[in-house]
Amino acid sequence: MSALAADAPARGPLRRFSNFLYRRPKLTLALLLLPPMLWLGVVYLGSLAALLAQSMFSVDDFSGLTVYQPTLKTYGELFQPASLDIILRTVVMAASVTLGCAVIGFPLAYYMARFAGLRAKAVFYLAVMLPLWSNYLVRVYSWKLILAKEGVITWLFGLVGLDGLLDWILALPVVGGPSLSASYIGMWVVFMYIWLPYMILPVEAALERVPRSLIEASADLGAHPRQTFRNVILPLAVPGIAAGSIFTFSLTLGDYIIPNLIGNSRPFIGMVVYSYQGTAGNIPGAAAFTLVPILVMALYLAAAKRLGAFDAL
């Protein structure tokens, strides 16, 4: 005891400070969490609250100036048929993009997690991530060219003699258009391309956590591969699909560049927010529209939880 006590005196202010922190783990934790909490609490949530507070004001129709009087008038405008149209269009697009990403991403993620060797897996990771390294705008503009009437897809369809099929697709009501780059189908394709990595990576991670012995146990108990997939693999992959769908769904809900560049220039939520807060100077309107994706996401997560998407976590 006395020998220990003789060693104990701190040798400098830094040592004494670190001893002081060592004896107070809660204070240490508080000091570590303070900067991120400040960032999250004040800068992020604070600005979001300020934005939403703006939605309680309204814009004077005549002067175009913001009236700083609390009112629900701006929210009321969300329920105008034109606004509901925009909301519905955006939500349907986000849902289709999510579904498409899940259908395309799952087999790839499954192959990466179950069958690919170490080298092949590294190549796949690189291939999935590589598009994220280049500029988003450049990629969207490239797709605009690819999908254009004179673009490589029209040319390819012509090459194999399927231009009739392409014309038939473009003649479809609502989703068609004069060219792929000016149709909802084109927009859907570009959205899927842009957000696909955000679906593949969490699904791959979820599948990788399924031990091989579970699949063997299912076969051992008499289940055919199809039954094993439905009863064991898919339920255990659902949290990954849910995580991926949160990305693809919310990113599509908020995006304003792709609907601006691809499609038939009918407005999406992101575009409306962008134009309201910019040229139109309608900050309350922009703020009210910002609330829509937040509410839609909250509903989406509640529904996913209810359906048991997170039970296997």
Binding site: S213, L214, A217, A219, A223, P235, L236
Partner: peptide, 20 residues
């Protein structure tokens, strides 16, 4: 003959219980 067509059952080392 695949495992699912054999009249044999296994108790696995890690038990391999279905977590869900």
């Amino acid at each position: 003959v695949p495992p699912y067509e054999r009249d044999v059952n296994t108790v696995f080392q890690d038990y391999a219980l279905f977590p869900h």
